[in-house]
């Protein structure tokens, strides 16, 4: 494959998978899955991190920090002000300038609050953060987040952790069409075919956690996701054939003639 790197906030990346570090059964499985996934960006909840001493944190202590970009998230925040406070804490600890804005409006669905997310994105962009908001798959709000200065926009395919796959491929396709910053599908995917489909729709990357961490074999599933991303991306770049109603023989009619 030719080089197909991409950029987020001026940072060149080769892997198109962002991996969440929660929910793994233990640190060994987590580290093996991270390796197998080929990811360059790790994401985690800031509230769970031991910010006073990041190198001693129960999860991050196992990670070689120079090998990965950290994308801390504000999960647990319910307002823009809360998300902004959390993001500032993370930056002050030297963790990262990147932040995934995640503001939930409902504790059962954890669906993002679009108004608060837009507000937090505006504030954090002005403060110089590289902001990647998690948002619903609504093309209008996604465009507004881009206009507010988001480095990438991350629509959910379905609610977090549900594994329902892409509920609205039409919207996702529109979002890809209308935005010029990278679109990263964040949340709701279940398995490799969901990932491949998202990539075929033209998104730039995938963020996931549960489908890998809670698989029977998280290490093998991490590898599967890496391959699905590559397969979907190649299919997107190659251009799929149009769908036709009737068959057309692939080897020409003459090969069907029986002597």
């Amino acid at each position: 494959m030719n080089r197909d790197n991409w950029q987020v906030g001026g940072q060149e990346l080769s892997s198109r998978l962002f991996l969440g570090t929660g929910l793994f059964p233990d640190p060994y499985v987590q580290m093996e899955a991270i390796k197998a996934s080929g990811t360059e960006v790790l994401t985690f909840a800031i509230r769970r991190i031991h910010l006073d001493s990041v190198e001693d944190d129960s999860i991050l202590q196992h990670v070689e920090p120079q090998k990965y970009i950290y994308l801390p998230n504000t999960s647990g925040a319910t307002t823009a002000d809360e998300a902004v406070r959390i993001a500032r804490l993370a930056r002050a600890s030297g963790l990262s300038d990147w932040v995934k804005v995640e503001i939930s409006a409902n504790k059962r669905t954890l669906l993002p609050d679009p108004i608060e997310t837009l507000r937090a994105t505006e504030i954090l962009v002005k403060e110089g953060f590289t902001v990647l908001p998690y948002i619903s798959d609504d093309p209008v709000i996604c465009k507004k987040l881009e206009e507010a200065g988001a480095a990438a926009v991350m629509p959910g395919a379905a609610p977090i952790g549900t594994g329902l796959g892409i509920l609205n491929p039409y919207h996702l396709g529109l979002i890809v069409e209308e935005l010029s910053v990278p679109v990263i599908v964040d949340a709701g995917l279940g398995t490799a075919s969901d990932v491949a489909l998202a990539m075929e729709l033209g998104v730039s990357g995938i963020l996931m956690n549960t489908p890998v961490a809670k698989a029977k074999d998280p290490v093998m599933m991490a590898r599967s996701m890496r391959l699905a991303i590559e397969a979907g991306r190649l299919a997107y770049l190659s251009g799929r054939i149009p769908k036709k109603k009737y068959a057309s023989a692939s080897s020409g009619l003459e090969s069907l003639v029986i002597e």
Binding site: A45, I46, R47, S75, G76, A77, T78, E82, S104, K107
Partner: peptide
């Protein structure tokens, strides 16, 4: 928990 953001969880 030591963060207000942990309350939701």
């Amino acid at each position: 928990v030591r963060h207000e953001a942990d309350l939701l969880a």
